[in-house]
Amino acid sequence: MSTTDFFSAMEVSASGLSAQRTRMNVASSNLANAQTTQAADGGAYKRRDVVMKSTDVPGAQGSQFQQFIKGVAVEQITEDQRPPRLEYDPGHPHANAEGYVAYPNINPVEEMVDMITASRAYEAGITAMSTAVNMAERALGIGR
């Protein structure tokens, strides 16, 4: 019977932490660019969203429960397709022919909620990881 070790549990938790941190970065980027009227592709900045996917963990390979040990990874970062918010400002350098400026359709409340959720999920991942460390320490203490 082949099993995993504590390092696989930590690997699983680490994958979750890294995915949540990416989500936090994307939310910060959305907030920072809430007024960006000209992004790299020319138009107004488009809100980004993180899509996650569960993955197999290399460290769990060979375990009899391999298929039930799931880490997580960011599958892709998508661009939100909601239309930009138009504001009439003919003097603005990025105004179109009709005098409207396209602003990204970003709702700061939505981004803040996303950041708080990511932060809580990060904390939960830390808890799971400290538990693995605590169990490993107890195992080291056997027989003392």
């Binding site: 099993t3 808890t127 169990m135």
Partner: peptide, 23 residues
């Protein structure tokens, strides 16, 4: 001990997949 260690890894995977669609 082995069982509880394996189970911890599985449960940690559930926490990691808190935001995975369809998980």
């Amino acid at each position: 001990l082995t069982y509880h260690r394996e189970r911890h890894t599985v449960l940690a995977g559930n926490v990691a997949n808190l935001d995975t669609p369809g998980y």
